[in-house]
Design a protein around this nucleic acid. Structure first.
Lengths: 212, 212
DNA sequence: CTTTTATGAGACGTTATTGTATCTTAGGTT
DNA sequence: AACCTAAGATACAATAACGTCTCATAAAAG
């Protein structure tokens, strides 16, 4: 499992099952609590985790370090969700559809990451990882333009931001319970390539309507 | 001009030019400062406004009241930007295109409103206004489905959230300087109805590409 | 069974921000 | 010119949250 090499703070033996249990509980509680309220206190996070506040401070030196590590885990989760896209060397539209399909079940983590971006911006390791992901995404967009899946006149920044926000839209609809992750990813793919108009020609891979 | 009837707190004569000047400066500084950092302090807001902190407290009883009033102004701004759509009784796709065109120059206010939603949720007047706007938007979407501009199988919640996020995408690109409000609204309209694929048929009103 | 170590509870100090109050000054009205 | 009133500076009190420290307990290791 990914080791938090981004910083070296460590007060105890991480292989002790009590320490592993506490740390995992804190990270999970951190995402859950901070997604609901980005100003949630450390006391609230510890309570949700079911551990003492002093224990939280044994695992994370400061509030900022907890958040940085939560952001690192979210980045790593989305990165690992896309690992098969790299290993299979998917390109263009195929890769973009796979990104939507793979990341949408993690849309909560993705949204969480964006909501705490001001913390992430100060951490060089996280910025490096994020920018590596962004470069790969831009390469896939460029390929989709070459294979005529995307109109090549469209600005790259708009396309990247649109993909981010389609993931957000999916997260929102999943969170409110109106869509499953699968439905949301299909709608995101359709929104991205075909828009919300009535379908008039058959260049979409998934031809049948998302809803009967 | 819209009077903040949502609450009756008022310590001084609002028609005094000094009071009007201070209040306007505080509201503008409030949006600017809180957009950058939703946790900005009242001291920071007063400094950006160029008024004393005590003056801020003469105009707004608490931090929360300032924010509620900022949200009210943002709601009113977007509502007034769409007034001509109502007065001309625009429907369906025409109305939706006009919404994008009218609101996009106010995308910063719109984004600001969404970022402070947790405050708004506690204010009945703001919620009422927002839900009235939402009902009108849903009516326009329903009309667009009837005039075959939107695939009627698509879920309403997705469509509404997508429009919100297209405005956010526009705001982001305007804020980073890569697009003008006009360019952004055209891209939002195209993204919404046609998606990012290569154009293969001519059902869009604005047929020429956004970019040559 | 003994030793080691992670943890929980609680006390404490520090800091930042909010909110209140007062006095003096200067802008606006009559 | 006189009067009224909005504002700026500053001091003060209260509160919330962060971060540190200590002691006793219990879980894990040997």
């Amino acid at each position: 499992m990914w080791l938090p090499y981004v910083f070296t703070y460590l007060k105890m033996n991480e292989s002790d099952p009590r320490a592993t249990r506490s740390r995992t509980a804190l990270l999970n509680a951190g995402v859950e609590t901070l997604l609901q309220n980005s100003n949630a206190t450390l006391t609230e996070i510890a309570q949700v985790a079911g551990v003492g506040r002093a224990t939280l401070y044994r695992h994370f030196q400061t509030r900022e370090q907890l958040i940085i590590e939560l952001a690192a885990e979210s980045l790593m989760a989305t990165d690992q969700a896309c690992a098969h896209i790299r290993s299979k060397e998917m390109k263009g539209r195929e890769a973009i559809e796979a990104i939507f399909t793979s990341v949408m079940p993690l849309a909560d983590r993705f949204h969480f990451l964006l909501s705490l971006w001001s913390y992430v911006e100060t951490n060089e390791t996280l910025k490096t990882t994020y920018h590596a992901q962004l470069s790969q995404l831009k390469a896939r967009i460029k390929e989709a333009k070459l294979d005529s899946s995307i109109d090549e006149s469209l600005p790259e920044e708009w396309l990247v931001c649109l993909m981010d926000n389609l993931l957000y839209t999916g997260w929102y609809c999943i969170a409110t319970g109106s869509l499953s992750a699968s439905e949301a990813s299909k709608l995101a793919i359709r929104s991205f390539f075909d828009g919300m108009g009535v379908k008039t020609n058959n260049h979409s891979r998934d031809d049948e309507s998302v809803f009967p």
